[in-house]
Design a protein around this nucleic acid. Structure first.
Length: 330
DNA sequence: TGAATTTGACCACC
DNA sequence: GGTGGTCAAATTCA
């Protein structure tokens, strides 16, 4: 899929009017809906968090084919980089890197995380969180089947944004057998950067929150939406393990359709947010505004963290086309 | 040619 | 000493 960021005032590039406008409107509404469902999504002091929803109207998505797919799917998978062979050996390498500097040494290695806030989520599409990230490392973690990828905010350099994240594929996410692989994403520190127009995050994108409803233990809800290339269409963090996280639901990757208990408490890093299945007034208005008679074109799905799909969402025609009313159990 | 990614080494913490 | 987080040169691609 190719995603074009619609310039503000430049109109959406969603295609032709009518159906296209509806589609754009739907994305907007989905973003607003997410805001309503996850009101406590912490906005950054500089307003970075607003990207979770407010920029939805600025979004412009061009389908790379029907249906909508995650941005990374359409981008060609890159295979950049390989370990260089240095003639001078490790010592020469360190010399060239300036590794002998005490200050430089102090800046390396494990850092204390005092005063930093962390949030942990589980998601099937770790790329879509509304921010742009630059990968700066990957590490094979002990006792983990898949390597962990390290990202920092792309504004870390020019705006000294402290936000970082690590993405690690869960061992239980097999990626086949009908279930997309899941990833544990740890967000470290809050964004202090101010998103530029060019870098403005489109819609949400992906948030997975576990539930602690006793009746449906170990479950998670996943809200995701197509958006611009947060990672500039770059490689999935899980690329090195030979997998591709896209949240795609297909015939080979079907979504079970049994109904589950969607009323639950959402858990983000131990903090549970209550989700009242009976919509609030704004939510009700939003729901009324949305045309749920038709499938929406944004990926919204609910999954269980134990690997099973517990929701009752229908991907009516194809991946990322679902009947959104089922999100609310109506 | 610049940007993004890879990847082994380095370093701090436990 | 083991492990995880970071650095930065090398590599690749648009």
């Amino acid at each position: 899929m190719q995603l074009n960021r619609g310039a503000v005032g430049g109109g959406h590039a969603c295609g032709t009017p009518d159906a296209t406008q509806l589609r754009c409107r739907e994305r907007e509404l989905v973003a607003q809906l997410h805001e309503l469902l996850f009101p406590s999504t912490p906005p950054s002091p500089a307003g970075g968090g607003a990207s979770w929803s407010s920029s939805a109207a600025e979004l412009s998505v061009e389908h790379c084919g029907s249906p909508v797919k995650a941005p990374t799917l359409c981008g060609r998978r890159r295979g950049r980089g390989s370990k260089r062979v240095r003639e001078g050996g490790p010592q020469e390498e360190q010399k060239q890197r300036g590794g002998s500097s005490a200050e430089t040494k102090a800046a390396r290695g494990r850092r204390k995380k005092e005063g930093t806030t962390t949030k942990t989520i589980v998601t099937t599409v770790p790329d879509f969180d509304g921010y742009q990230w630059k990968k700066y490392g990957q590490k094979q973690i002990e006792a983990a089947q898949y390597p962990r990828s390290y990202y920092r905010c792309t504004n870390s350099a020019d705006q000294a944004c402290p936000a970082k994240r690590t993405v690690q594929r869960n061992d239980d996410g097999d990626g086949d057998g009908g279930r997309p692989p899941k990833y544990t994403v740890v967000y470290i520190s809050e964004h202090s950067c101010k998103l530029t127009e060019a870098a403005a995050a489109p819609v949400i994108l992906e948030t997975t929150v576990g539930t602690k409803a006793p009746a449906a233990p170990d479950t998670a809800a996943v809200f995701s939406s197509s958006s611009s290339a947060f990672s500039n269409g770059t490689q999935s963090p899980a690329s090195s393990d030979g997998t591709w996280s896209d949240g795609t639901v297909s015939e080979a990757n079907p979504v079970p359709r049994e109904r589950g208990d969607c009323s639950s408490l959402f858990d983000v890093d131990g903090d549970y947010w209550e989700w009242d299945p009976s919509p609030t007034a704004p939510a009700a208005a939003l729901l009324q505004d949305m045309d749920f008679a038709r499938p929406i074109m944004s990926p919204v799905h609910i999954a269980a963290t134990d690997g099973s799909w517990i929701n009752d969402l229908f991907f009516n025609e194809s991946p990322f086309v679902l009947n959104s009313c089922q999100l609310f159990g109506y």
